[in-house]
């Protein structure tokens, strides 16, 4: 008699947990779908493309944008696009990886700063700065559709 009660209680708890999980995961999925309205998605895209635009200007040596963001990406007149037309040959999808020029394990932001300091002969920027985020955004956007391949050389 006592054993039967335990079994019933355990079964009840199990069924309750199942119902809870099913309803909560359903709610989550539903909430996620409802969260992003077309207007919201447009707003997210606008924010993203604004960063692409700023990154594009910085990448092509736009002095006004550099001044506005308080960065000096080159002291010689060099710009990132002079070595990487269309954001090419910078392989953002290979990072992080061991980078020979730096002799260390590097992120894309480390690599961007190396290019600013060495070939561009500019002043290294804060890895969390708006300029760095914009440059990173433009470079990744330029390589949209590439397959992630971290660590590759």
């Amino acid at each position: 008699m006592k054993r039967t009660r335990y079994v019933r209680t355990a079964l009840g708890v199990f069924v309750g947990v199942l119902v809870l999980l099913a309803t909560s995961s359903g709610d989550r999925a539903l909430a996620h779908k409802e969260k992003h309205t077309p207007d919201q998605l447009k707003a997210f895209e606008d924010v993203f493309m604004e960063q692409v635009k700023i990154g594009d200007l910085l990448f092509h040596g736009d002095g006004a944008t550099e001044k506005r963001l308080g960065v000096t990406l080159s002291k010689t007149g060099m710009a990132c696009a002079m070595c990487h037309p269309f954001g090419s040959d910078n392989h953002p999808y290979e990072f992080p990886k061991f980078q020979e020029q730096m002799n260390k394990f590097a992120t894309l932001r480390d690599m961007i700063n190396w290019c600013i300091e060495k070939p561009n002969e500019g002043v290294k920027i804060d890895p969390d700065s708006d300029a760095m985020k914009a440059l990173e955004t433009y470079i990744i956007w330029s390589n949209k559709g590439s397959k992630l391949d971290p660590g590759r050389h």
């Binding site: 002291k75 010689t76 007149g77 060099m78 710009a79 002079m82 070595c83 070939p119 002969e121």
Partner: peptide, 16 residues
């Protein structure tokens, strides 16, 4: 004529 007075990359010297 604008170009850097000194640059360590002779393969790519910007000229304006």
């Amino acid at each position: 004529l604008r170009s850097p007075a000194f640059t360590s990359n002779g393969a790519k010297v910007p000229v304006v």
